[in-house]
Design a protein around this nucleic acid. Structure first.
Lengths: 183, 183
DNA sequence: CTAGCTTGTGGAGACCTCTCCACAACAATA
DNA sequence: TATTGTTGTGGAGAGGTCTCCACAAGCTAG
């Protein structure tokens, strides 16, 4: 049985966090707890890590992004849809720095977090479309792609576009010209 | 005029740090200061950031890695040389976790640090060789490549190889089949 | 209404990175 | 050797993430 004040607290935390992050993308966990009028312990019981909180806050932001996939896929060829979507994603990560950090963690903890899943699903859908029409290699992995996306986010803004181009080229179905010498 | 005790301290710090990191790759700066018998202030005056210290510690490790480039380039075709070298680099980053973190920082601060430069130079050399023999696109950028390498390091170990393959494919000189629709 | 049990709480505290500055140690000069 | 810059020092402290647990609140059942 979930205690009533507990639910109250959780939503106060989320509200406080949302506002705090809107003003300053680097707000500390302590500050959020303070703004929400709860102790650090309560904050961390609700959100076991900074990452988890951020992913929850930006859930709708991410949702909006994910929702554009279908549209992009009707308007553009899969590769171009993927390109555009990724540009938008990296852009969002850059604007909400915290989101970038949460989506490209050092380890792979965020797996299965409420926001991480949908992002992977969106990428999977875009890749699938490309595989179907033969413009993307069959062994492309959504998780790998997101990881690579993290590199774009970390890179200097003006390198983002050429790096993405490189990745997209790597995603092409490979012909076996210029074969790799095995040794 | 550099004071004599200062030089003394600096080398004590380096020695302590070297040993500490050998035992525990996550040793804290405080602990290193303590082991070296200096205050935190002194540590930070010598090494303005964690990153800087780590890069100095692993300078020879990096040096060794960099030195293998020439050898690889005589034994293998450029692309294969690049592949092997990168595998070794990522491997080293994984073994010395701290080195990985120092070489793939969130921001791009490490630029021009004593170890960062040589790594970039090594990559540049490998890429150059590939450009010369036409197996690597002319616009490939060493810094971009290192950034991407950071993604390999952060990824699950078993994804490292396929991701690298993808990057290497992206580095190929691109023929203009499967053209990208511009919109 | 109260007793008891379960669930949730706050904030002290461990440990982190990095800054700041009154003071100490050296070097140069008289 | 004494004096006087200069250069370097240590550790307190600001502010961070996250853990732990004695205690408080909410919820049944009698």
């Amino acid at each position: 049985m979930v205690r009533s004040d507990a639910r109250e607290n959780r939503s106060r935390i989320l509200a406080a966090a949302r506002q705090a992050f809107a003003e300053d993308d680097d707000t500390s966990m302590n500050r959020i707890a303070q703004l929400a009028g709860v102790g650090a312990g309560t904050l961390y019981r609700n959100y076991p890590s900074r990452e988890a909180l951020i992913l929850d806050i930006y859930q709708d932001e991410v949702g909006r992004l994910v929702a554009t996939v279908a549209e992009l896929l009707t308007a553009f060829a899969p590769r171009e849809a993927l390109r555009r979507w990724t540009v938008a994603l990296v852009d969002a990560m850059r604007k909400k720095h915290a989101l970038g950090a949460a989506l490209s963690p050092d380890a792979h903890k965020s797996m299965a977090e409420r926001s991480y899943g949908p992002v992977i699903a969106a990428i999977a859908e875009l890749l699938e479309a490309g595989k179907r029409d033969g413009s993307i290699r069959a062994d492309a992995e959504p998780v790998d792609f997101l990881q690579l996306t993290g590199a774009l986010w970390r890179a200097a803004p003006d390198r983002s576009e050429p790096m993405l181009a490189l990745i997209l080229d790597g995603l092409r179905v490979q012909t076996e010209n210029s074969p790799l010498p095995v040794d």
